[in-house]
Write a protein that binds this DNA or RNA. Structure first.
Length: 336
DNA sequence: AAACTTTCCAACCGCCTCAAA
DNA sequence: TTTTGAGGCGGTTGGAAAGTT
């Protein structure tokens, strides 16, 4: 019953790889490949290592075309937007960055990029509080999010006014008078664009903002069964450089943030440039994940899966390929 | 220069899914 | 149908390197 035993764990070497081990592994794989069997590989290659260790060493360090060293601004942006979309699914993120490994990206995020973004964000306590009523009933105990990918310019909104969709419904450019429809499953919120961007907006509780930014969320942080909720954590939030305002409020222990991407990049060479690159963030690189896969992952990247009614809603334009390529991620977090 | 602290990252650990037996 | 291992993944850690006092 079951498969053959794994490697003799009591008799395998651990710790850093020596140059000799590296060359043995590299030479063997270059000559014979992995054979689809990492467990058997170390013995064949003359290594006293666990197959898992060999796999990791090969994938993260020895395989060809591994890119080490500084991450570019473009890579920063891509990591940020994908992290905002799908969370810490490093292998998927890595698939969109040629030459980068999931481990590299994970380390980079944990040690540098997260701090970099945090340094740009104002402390939550400094943000204005609102008197606006909660938009989400207090019975909602899940961390919820509404995600949309909006083309950089112009802004789009679904023509059928329904954002409850995981598909890419038809979109039309919004005029300055067209309300944005922000939706969670119980609340449809209409917001005029000028209410988002005007400093003298009349919408109580919504603070004006100018420039793009991004918020990040962790996985579910509270329970729907017992109603307990942890407060939003500072490290769960990141902002893109270049924002001037964020709008958010706190009410009845709920945090609400409303974020919006701007198309005005102004040519600044910084993180606030989202999509100057003609080929965009997706689609130009060979990876195991196609654009459709990424869309699907984004559309399913919630707590409970694609079919849950509290789903993250994801939409884009009919011209999916091109529009998605220069899209930005807009996150709305409700109720932590 | 030494002691201490912080940062960085390679590698390990443990969990999950899938499939072989 | 059940058990078990392989492969894959994300979280965590230990120690080296870099920075600070």
């Amino acid at each position: 019953m079951g498969r053959a035993p794994c490697c003799d764990k009591a008799n395998v070497k651990k710790g850093p790889w020596s140059p000799e081990e590296d060359s043995k592994l590299k030479e063997y794989i270059e000559k014979y490949g992995t054979g689809g069997n990492w467990i058997a590989l170390p013995q064949k290659a003359g290594l006293k290592r666990c197959g898992k260790s060999c796999r990791l060493r090969w994938l993260n360090y020895l395989r060809p075309n591994i890119k080490h060293g500084e991450f570019t601004d473009e890579e920063d942006r891509l990591i940020c937007s994908l992290f905002a979309s799908i969370g810490s699914r490093w292998s998927i993120i890595a698939a969109q960055l040629p030459g980068r490994t999931d481990n590299d990206i994970k380390n980079y995020w944990n040690t540098k990029l997260k701090k970099k973004l945090m340094a740009m964000a104002p402390p939550l306590s400094s943000q204005k509080k609102s008197t606006a009523p909660p938009l989400i009933p207090s019975s909602h105990h899940h961390h919820q999010a509404l995600v949309s990918l909006l083309p950089s310019q112009p802004y789009y909104t679904p023509s059928n006014k329904s954002l409850i969709s995981n598909s890419f419904d038809s979109f039309e450019p919004i005029s300055s008078n067209t309300p944005l429809h922000l939706f969670d499953n119980n609340n449809l919120i209409q917001i005029q664009e000028n209410q988002l961007f005007s400093n003298n907006n009349s919408m109580q509780g919504y603070y004006p903002m100018k420039d793009n930014f991004l918020t990040f969320g962790s996985e579910q942080s509270c329970s729907s069964s017992d109603g307990s909720c942890s407060q939003i954590k500072q490290e769960d939030i990141g902002f893109h450089q270049g924002f001037n305002y964020s709008n958010g409020f706190e009410e009845n222990n709920q945090k609400f943030m409303l974020n919006y991407g701007s198309s005005d990049r102004g040519g600044h060479e910084s993180l606030n440039q989202w999509s100057e690159k003609p080929n965009g963030y997706f689609g130009e690189i060979a990876s195991d994940y196609s654009l459709e896969d990424v869309k699907q992952l984004i559309s399913c990247s919630n707590i409970n899966g694609c079919n849950n009614e509290n789903n993250i809603n994801f939409f884009s334009s009919t011209d999916q390929e091109t529009k998605l390529q220069d899209s930005k991620v807009m996150y709305h977090y409700f109720n932590y």
